[in-house]
Write a protein that binds this DNA or RNA. Structure first.
Lengths: 220, 220
DNA sequence: ACATTAAGTGGACATGTGTCCGCTTCGTGC
DNA sequence: GCACGAAGCGGACACATGTCCACTTAATGT
């Protein structure tokens, strides 16, 4: 997670968890195991679907004990998050770059917000299975997934853009920025989004248009 | 679930599951067990919190086998739903009555919609623990809770009011009514709402004001 | 090289959900 | 009253998550 300060907008998240430096490096056999686990998990998920693969399956297929598996990834949610990590970073980068470009082009703040939401929809669609698992959190601490870095980054980004729109005078100052940002993002929570797609049968386009309309109506 | 047709608005849900009449009535020992289970569950939930009570606990405390418990309620989600049943019906009634009254008083459709959302927020707050459990669905079929009657009723109600607002000319015909209704309701999904209250620390009033602002901006 | 030690390992175990199935009991028709 | 069949019963069982802990091993200092 990076902190990006462009113009007066603050988007993304400050670095915090990045080991104060006092921690010993991961042992190399451990690193090898981690890599093997991730590779095996990816294969199994692809072959049988995220929901149909158990932690025990993964441990067995990776040739490690369950204790080892759980030492690396506290639960399937964390493992899913780790599997998405690279792609999510690339996604983050591309969003940031695009926003920067739009700022340079003096695009309207609300236009940037709309574009960002559309991108998030794309990401939610592409990774819905893993994101659903990640959102769930562990069985012991359910629904902790909304606190995970990717979700928080999404929130900080949308909130930052909305705040910028307010400061640019495109949206009334009376608006409750944090709350509104959460509400714009609520339909994109993995399980909710998945419900729209599967149970309701909404197309990506309909979802995007619906959200866009709400955003488009925010200005006074 | 009732079907209520007032004016040209259709709110609520048609009766469908109500046993075509061919089914044999529940045996009275079974009915007694069901009642005992519900009473015991209510007591345990109140004493230790919904999340801290297991199905095995309930079976033991009710003096029945687990098989019996699961025969009555397929999972904790269903049990939670059953516990709310009475209160939810009363809530439904009061909402319907109020809407009827507002229609009589020729209140604006959007005003009715705002009022309904505020009521739903109140209900979500009061029963958040049970609703979260209900939303989750079983472990085997996760997130099936949004398909449960109470959630569906909420959706049909909000959608009906929004549709009425469109037909009354208060909101543009271009709007995608089903999608927008879902999006207005997304922040009230039990787990999302609970996240706002606990993790974000939003007050009821802020949530209500935020939603209200979005609804208030829908008109052309 | 070798001792030291924190990190790593793996499988047994504890707990929770949900299913299965042989036995029991209620309600009905005679 | 009685027999009979379906509904009900309950506990053993299958399977998943996540913890624990006695043993092993890789890295570091001398």
């Amino acid at each position: 997670m990076r902190l990006l300060l462009v113009d007066e907008i603050q988007v993304g998240l400050p670095i915090v968890n990045d080991s104060g430096g006092a921690e010993r490096a991961e042992r190399c056999d451990a690193a090898a195991n981690r890599a093997r686990i991730l590779a095996v998990a990816e294969k199994l998920f692809a072959a049988r679907g995220v929901a149909e693969v158990t932690m025990a399956d993964i441990a067995r297929a990776a040739g490690v004990g369950q204790g080892t598996l759980y030492r690396r990834f506290a639960n399937k949610s964390e493992l899913s998050l780790a599997l998405m990590d690279r792609q999510f970073r690339e996604f983050q980068d591309s969003v940031m770059r695009q926003i920067n470009w739009m700022i340079g082009a003096r695009a309207a703040r609300l236009g940037q917000l709309e574009w960002a939401l559309e991108s998030l929809i794309g990401f939610a669609e592409k990774h819905s299975a893993l994101l659903c698992e990640a959102e769930r959190g562990g069985v012991v601490v359910p629904n902790s997934g909304l606190q995970a870095p990717p979700m928080m980054w999404q929130y900080m980004t949308i909130r930052g853009l909305l705040q910028a729109a307010v400061e640019a005078g495109e949206v009334s100052r009376e608006i409750d920025v944090p709350v509104t940002a959460d509400m714009l993002l609520a339909p994109l929570h993995p399980s909710t989004f998945s419900f729209y797609r599967r149970a309701r049968g909404y197309s990506i386009e309909r979802i995007n248009a619906g959200l866009k309309r709400i955003v488009g109506r925010l200005p006074r």
